[in-house]
Simulated assay, not measured.
Amino acid sequence: MDTDIMTIKEVASYLKITEKTAYRLTADGEIPGFKVGGAWRFRKQEIDAWIDERLKSGGKSD
């Protein structure tokens, strides 16, 4: 069974950014994520929606 939940390492790889950048963007509320036992987790469909929003806004943050 495939899951749509990704770790910080997986989301960093998916976005082709460093883990450090992924942590910073998540902590700043830029990337939608949630914590489970102190570790960040991300729903793939929310990451895809976040990407779509960035594309619609020309890559600018809200």
Results as ranks from 00 to 15, higher is better:
R41N: 11
F34R: 07
Q45S: 12
A27L: 12
G33A: 11
G38Q: 13
K60Q: 02
I5T: 14
A49N: 09
R43G: 04
V11I: 09
D2K: 13
I31M: 10
E30W: 02
S13E: 15
G29I: 03
I8D: 14
T21L: 12
A22G: 02
V36Y: 15
E53H: 08
M1K: 10
W40S: 10
W50C: 05
G29F: 09
S13W: 13
M1N: 14
G38H: 15
D4A: 03
L25W: 15
E46N: 06
F42I: 03
W40C: 04
I51S: 04
A12Y: 11
K60I: 00
D2C: 02
P32H: 00
A22L: 03
A27F: 07
A49M: 00
D2N: 14
T26G: 05
Y23N: 01
R41S: 10
E53P: 05
Q45R: 07
G59Y: 10
S61Q: 13
A27S: 13
I17K: 08
I17D: 06
A12W: 12
G37Q: 12
G58F: 00
R41I: 03
R54T: 08
L25E: 12
P32R: 02
Y14H: 15
W40N: 08
K16V: 03
M1I: 06
A49D: 11
E53C: 05
M6H: 14
G58R: 01
K44I: 04
E10P: 05
G29S: 03
E19F: 01
T18E: 09
E19T: 06
G33M: 04
W40Q: 08
